[in-house]
Each structure stands twice: as C-alpha cells, then as structure tokens.
Design a protein around this nucleic acid. Structure first.
Length: 566
DNA sequence: GCCGTTTTCGGCCCGACTGTTTTCAGTCG
C-alpha cells in the first residue's frame, strides 16, 4: 500500500459519503487524501516512527483517519471502506471521469437505473432512459453521451517546455493591441509546473469584442470552444485548450491570484481571510460589502498578513506558513544564472559545432558554458581518447565566452566510470550519469551511485533519477544517502533542464536544498536552440525553493573552477 | 471527520454556469 493508493481510497470514501449527502465528512477525507498524496516520504515510514501519533501530525489526519491508515498499512484492507463499497458497488473512478457526472448524479442513476459503469451509462443514455428521470432532460442526456465520447476529465497534460513558448507568443500578440491594458498568463503555466493541463490568460481590455475576436482568430487556434465577452476558450494546434478571461482593472490582482492557484493554496488563503472576518474571492477582499483590496496581488497577500508569495511556490507545501512568519526563501532569479553546464556538440550526438553553441549561449547572456559530450559511449556517438584531445585543442582556440571542457561519462552497472582516470584528470568538468541498467533494484542503484561518486574526478551527477516525463518513471534509490555523499565529496546534483527530463524535479530539489546539497543546472542541449531550456531549469529550481547560493551556475568563474577542482 | 492567536464545540471556500427549474441543485474550477 503506497501513499497514492491510500489517498485514492480516501478520495473514494469522500465520493461515496458525498452521494449519501453526509455533510462535511467528504471535505475531511478529501483533505486527508490530498495531504497524503503530497507527502514526500513513505507513509509507512512515518507510521513506523511513532505510530498513530506521527500519523496525526499529517495535516487533515485526525484520530479516525489515522486508525484507518494504520489498518491499511497493517492489513492492506479497510473494513469501513469495503462496507461502503458493498452498498455502492459502482465504478466511481470510471463514472466520475465523465464531465458532468458528480457524486449526486452517479448516486441517482444507480438508484433509478442501477447504472454501475461506463458501459451501462452509455447504453441507458442511448436508449433514452435517462431523460425520463426527474431532474434530467433531453439536453442532459445528449450532453452525457457527448462527454462519454470525450472522456473530458482525462484530457492529457502537456510538457511545460512545449506550451510555454506557444502561450507566450499569444500573450505577446495580445499585448500589442492598444485596447489591452494589462495581460498575464495564469494557472499552472505561471507556476511553471512541469506539465500543463490548459493555458489561462487574463487581461484587462477596453474593447472586449475586438480582443476576443483577435484571440479566437489567432493562427494557432484550430477550434473555438466558447466565445463570450468575459471568457473565450479555444483549442490550439498543440492540442491544449487556452482560455482568455477579461476582468476589471480593480479586480486584476485578486483575479490573477485566483486563476494562478493552485487550488489548495487558494482554499488556504480563503480560510485565512475568513479567520480575519473577511471574504476573499476572485473579485477582491471584502469586509462585509466593502472591497478593501484586489487591485494587485501584492495587496491581496499583504491584506491577509502574508509576505508576497512567488507563483512557483504556490502549491500549499508550506509556503503560506513561511510567508506568515516572514521566512520565505529569496529565490534564485533569472539574472543570477551565469552559464549552462551540460550540452553536446557534433563531437558526439549534438547537431551544432562548439562555436555555434558558444555563440548562441552568448546571445542568451551566458558568461560561460560547459561542452560535455559523451565519452567512450558508442550508442551516443561518444568520443574516443584522440577526439577528446582534439576537442580540448579546439576549445582553446575559440574566442568569446568561457568554455569549460567537460565530458559526460557513463556509470557502469558496477558503479565505475567508463572513462579512464588518466583522461578525466585533464578535463575541467566531469559529469557522470546512468544511461543503462535502469531495472536494478533500489539497493543496487544506490550502491552504484555511491561508488561512482567516490571517483575523485566526478563533479556532477546528471539527471539523477533517470525519469522521462510521460515515458519512464526513473529508477529508485536512497535519496538521503546520495545527498550525504554529494555533500561529503563536493559533488553537485544536476537539475537537468531538458524539456522532458526536469530531473531532479521540484520536490527532490526542495529536499536537496533542505540538505544543503549543491545543484547544477544543465540543459543537455543537443542543438543550439535547446539552450533555451535553461529557463525551465530555473523554474524547477525556484519551485524547489532554491536560492542563488544553492546553484553553482551562479558562481563566479573562479569559484566555479575551485568547485570543479575541489 | 478535523481543527482552534477570538473556539475542545461549532464551524467547515467561493462564485459561475447550466439545465431544469419556478427559486435551485449539481458540477466545475
């Protein structure tokens, strides 16, 4: 029973209780499920520490839910849940995934028509049985059928790195309109989450009609879903939906705050408002009927007694508590980054020459780069000893920004570095990474990484978990032991900024920062345009609460050289 | 069922939209 499975059970209990019209309990179960889902540790571990007592320290978990967690850990079952299931034997996950099917509707359709799953729902809708039930009608029935076809809630998510440039282009084009007084991207895109569900754009406009026309006629738009004067919704070429909402200037701040989210961050803010006898909504902060804030986000947070919280932190993972105590970190800024420490040239599997990479990096404002082609690795066109020597000579000839001569070496199944020490010793920066043998168990991978980090030339462990978004989960290892070793040996762990890696991810970056481990940002670019991904790396760092001093890309050249030589 | 710098009892986030209604319930974000 892992955290996700336990959370899922509590979500289902919440749904069933909701059907039964039991007040407030669903809210409690959902809250507990949410906290369990976002734990960074195995809940079993927490339980083993101090039993029920340590479970109750999880927010939203009290006496009763703690006992249920205990039962699940110990037996793998939950009698209370199974009893509920027997009375409500419907496939909640399936039916609930249909847009318009909430708990009350599912309950009603089960009671009246014994509908238990998607197949039965579709059959009933097609044969016109649903429209005859009180509270339903032809339109509802037709809509349900449509939504079954769409399976709308399961719309897939998209890579931040793909959507970010597309959304920015739309925003910038709207910004050109004279009528548009203010505009910003909201939602998970503003929080720079690694995957994005849809694009939310907020604007203030003097001419809503013209603005909406312009938006819905953009060349990126393939379908208009809704078009109104306050809100329009379109589907873009990439497949993602984009909303444009127009709001009044005096609510701009509170609307931006509201539409940036995330949801539990917002709920917490509303609770704080309520505790102060105020009301917070997307229209502002109200005392009775009087609006007392809402024009800017800063004002909203301030009025709630909080320091301003950067969008990347708004995930309800402790940022509100920190803001209250004025303990938010001073997050790393874009301009703190002086260079990129992982990229490939045509010496291995990259598309561009070293010179081309360096020139593009210079345009981006970098002061240095590290060329880190694969060494001794045939599959990726890795260099042999002679090519490595030639590469060094070429780097020394190139004028312009500082180029560190690096290498990306493999960590073998035994934890050895696949490039001999006599070569490594003359290289400025050595990146080591696992590129094969992902299936080893947790212990084996941990040992493999630890052994590799004992090599005295290794400076950076690249893409430490090996995950690929939407593709591969990544291998497991004992994070804490790797952190301790990295600190002991003066090795940095990488935030690989390649769009489908983002590895370490935000959660692990936060843990690393807490452990005072140094991090390095590298794009892993295989062509010059991919050097743009460094922005994604900064986003992950910021979402992981990283400060300037946590990231070695912010070091001065001298300090960085010292770090590499250690 | 959880939780508390106004509470160990009495509260629990807010508003828009929609379809089916004659004043609202359910769903969504």
């Amino acid at each position: 029973m892992n955290n996700q499975q336990i959370a899922q059970i509590f979500y289902e209990i919440a749904e069933i209780l909701e059907m039964k019209d039991i007040p407030f309990k669903p809210w409690a179960y959902r809250k507990a499920a949410q906290s369990i889902e976002s734990l960074t540790r195995d809940i079993k571990e927490i339980y083993e520490e101090n039993g029920l007592k340590s479970l109750k320290e999880i927010p939203g978990v009290g006496e009763s839910i703690a006992k249920k967690i205990e039962e699940l850990i110990k037996t793998g079952h939950l009698r209370a849940y199974e009893k509920l299931k027997r009375k409500m034997p419907v496939n909640l996950e399936e039916l609930g995934s249909i847009q318009g099917m909430g708990p009350k509707t599912i309950q009603k359709l089960y009671k009246k028509l014994k509908i238990k799953n998607l197949k039965e729902l579709e059959k009933a809708a097609k044969s016109g049985k649903i429209r005859k039930i009180a509270g339903f009608g032809e339109k509802r029935e037709r809509e349900l059928l449509e939504n079954i076809g769409m399976k709308k809630k399961k719309t897939k998510r998209f890579l931040l790195g793909l959507i970010f440039p597309e959304a920015k282009e739309i925003r910038d084009s709207l910004k050109q309109l004279r009528e548009v007084k203010k505009i910003e991207i909201g939602g998970s895109l503003r929080r720079m989450k690694e995957t994005i569900g849809d694009v939310d754009i907020l604007a203030v406009s003097n001419d809503p009609e013209k603005t909406m026309d312009f938006f819905t006629k953009r060349k990126e738009v393939v379908k208009i879903l809704v078009k109104g004067l306050n809100k329009s919704s379109v589907r873009l070429k990439s497949g993602i939906n984009a909303d444009l909402r127009l709001i009044q200037m005096e609510s701009y701040g509170s609307a931006l705050q509201y539409f940036t989210g995330n949801k539990s961050h917002n709920i917490k803010l509303r609770n704080i408002a309520r505790e102060k006898g105020l009301k917070l909504s997307e229209y502002g902060i109200f005392k009775g009927n009087r609006k007392i804030a809402g024009k800017t986000e800063e004002e909203v947070y301030k009025r709630l007694g909080l320091r301003y919280i950067e969008p990347e932190l708004r995930e309800d993972t402790g940022e509100i508590e920190s803001a209250k105590q004025n303990k938010l970190p001073n997050l790393i800024k874009h301009y703190d980054i002086k260079g990129d420490l992982h990229m490939h040239s045509d010496y291995s599997d990259g598309n561009n020459t070293i010179k081309e990479m360096a020139e593009y990096a210079s345009i981006l404002g970098h002061k240095f780069i590290a060329i880190t082609d694969h060494g001794f690795y045939k599959i990726a066109g890795g260099m042999d000893e002679k090519e490595i020597i030639n590469q060094k000579k070429e780097i020394n000839r190139i004028r312009g920004i500082k180029i560190f001569h690096g290498i990306e070496a493999n960590i073998t199944k035994e934890g050895l570095i696949n490039v001999p020490d006599r070569i490594l010793k003359d290289i400025d920066v050595v990146i080591a990474a696992i590129h094969s043998g992902f299936k080893q168990d947790k212990q084996a991978i941990t040992k493999r990484l630890l052994t590799a980090m004992d090599n005295k030339y290794v400076n950076i462990i690249a893409h430490p978990t090996g995950r690929l978004l939407f593709k591969r989960k990544g291998y497991e290892f004992d994070l804490q032991r790797i952190f301790d070793k990295a600190k002991e040996r003066g090795i940095a762990l990488e935030i690989n900024a390649f769009l489908n890696r983002l590895d370490l991810n935000d959660v692990n970056v936060k843990l690393a920062v807490d452990n005072k481990v140094k991090l390095s940002i590298g794009t892993d670019a295989h062509s010059k345009e991919q050097l743009d991904f460094y922005k994604l790396g900064i986003a992950v760092a910021r979402r992981g609460w990283a400060k300037k001093e946590d990231i070695i890309n912010t070091y001065s050249m001298q300090k960085l050289e010292r770090f590499f030589r250690r």
